Amino acid sequence: MRRVPLRCLPVCVALLSVASCGRGGAADDGRAPGAPTGITAAAGSATSVHVMWNDVPDGRGGPAIRAYEVYRGPAKVTEVPGSQHMVDVVRLRPSTLYVFTVRARDTGGRLGPPSRAVRARTPARVAADRTSPTRPSRPAGRTVGDRAVQLSWSASRDDRGVSSYDILQGGVKIHSVGGGQTATVVTGLRPGTGYVFTVRARDAADNLSPAGAAVRLTTPGTDDGRGTAPTDFTATTHRSAGAYSVDLSWDPPDVDGVITEYLIQLDGRDATSLVWGGDPPRGRAHHSFYLGREAGAEHRVRLRARLPDGTWGGFSAERTVTTGANG
């Protein structure tokens, strides 16, 4: 299933076609990856700038992209996994002009050339600003094919000015746009899936408005969830201090964006949520949780990921474990 990076783009700008990030291709030709395209930067507050870019495709015959390096001027400020195409650069100074570039590094360690430079100026921070913007009003939306929606809203009011708008789906922030925008296109969605979008305004002091009214949209088509399920899922048990725990291992679903949360079901019921406190692990993931003290107890376990578009993906295969059977 072809995946498109989750992006929010101003309606007034033509959508860029993003190349599929397949992992196949010819043998390594020794060339470094190309420069990221479509880079933009917008101030999110007086101390942060949101930078996003298009993925660098693997069609040059070389290794896959391992990471993207983000630079502020000549200095590298952060690095994100190759599946991520946006980042909030924080701890900046108010009322300051910044210049950002992005470079791709492949799994062979080669660093590609920088993207074009983009500029963003952080707004001034006004002392003792505790007034939140008003909620965005008259939100509206429509589907644009089976993987994108167009959203619009009326501008919020703030005594010091709106710096940005946060776009949420199902209560999860999936992107932000500049304070001067009142429309956007969200891509990278799933066919045949229901979405609930809301918008919140943010000012330079990071005061947040209440969320606007929900916009409920369902993309056309069908999606059985198989392409978004964790794969190679395994489950075993071990005993420690007289109690049993289950040890899980899996490969994250192949989606564009970073997965930070999983829901684990035990015996058909939601048992626990796993949320990575920092950067999620790259590659195979592992987790253990408590089952009880009874030996010979049989349990069924499976899990699914919260995807970058804010929806839950498909469940992994279900595994059956018996306490005491293997440890």
Rank of each mutant, 00 (worst) to 15 (best):
residue 69 E to D: 13
residue 287 H to T: 02
residue 197 F to G: 05
residue 100 F to S: 02
residue 38 G to I: 14
residue 11 V to H: 02
residue 127 A to P: 07
residue 11 V to M: 03
residue 214 A to R: 15
residue 125 R to V: 04
residue 55 D to H: 14
residue 112 G to E: 03
residue 234 T to Q: 07
residue 251 D to G: 00
residue 101 T to M: 05
residue 316 S to E: 00
residue 2 R to K: 07
residue 202 R to S: 03
residue 121 R to I: 07
residue 237 T to H: 04
residue 105 R to H: 07
residue 3 R to G: 10
residue 159 D to S: 14
residue 19 A to N: 12
residue 98 Y to W: 05
residue 167 I to C: 02
residue 240 S to T: 15
residue 276 W to G: 00
residue 27 A to H: 13
residue 305 A to E: 01
residue 60 R to M: 04
residue 99 V to P: 01
residue 21 C to L: 07
residue 190 R to Q: 10
residue 257 G to V: 06
residue 164 S to R: 07
residue 212 G to F: 14
residue 79 E to M: 12
residue 91 R to C: 08
residue 203 D to F: 03
residue 286 H to K: 09
residue 193 T to P: 05
residue 61 G to C: 11
residue 326 N to Y: 00
residue 227 G to V: 07
residue 50 H to W: 14
residue 214 A to W: 10
residue 144 V to C: 03
residue 19 A to K: 11
residue 41 A to L: 10
residue 226 R to T: 13
residue 65 I to Y: 03
residue 2 R to Y: 11
residue 317 A to W: 02
residue 173 K to A: 06
residue 40 T to C: 09
residue 100 F to M: 04
residue 82 G to D: 05
residue 246 V to M: 12
residue 112 G to H: 07
residue 246 V to P: 15
residue 313 G to R: 06
residue 36 P to T: 10
residue 277 G to E: 11
residue 13 V to P: 00
residue 239 R to V: 07
residue 12 C to E: 15
residue 68 Y to M: 09
residue 66 R to N: 02
residue 244 Y to Q: 02
residue 183 A to P: 09
residue 141 G to L: 04
residue 8 C to D: 02
residue 168 L to C: 03
residue 250 W to D: 03
residue 208 L to K: 12
residue 301 V to A: 11
residue 309 D to T: 05
residue 126 V to M: 09
residue 183 A to C: 13
residue 143 T to K: 10
residue 4 V to H: 10
residue 128 A to Y: 08
residue 187 T to P: 06
residue 320 T to A: 06
residue 121 R to A: 14
residue 172 V to Q: 11
residue 12 C to A: 15
residue 318 E to W: 04
residue 44 G to V: 03
residue 162 V to W: 03
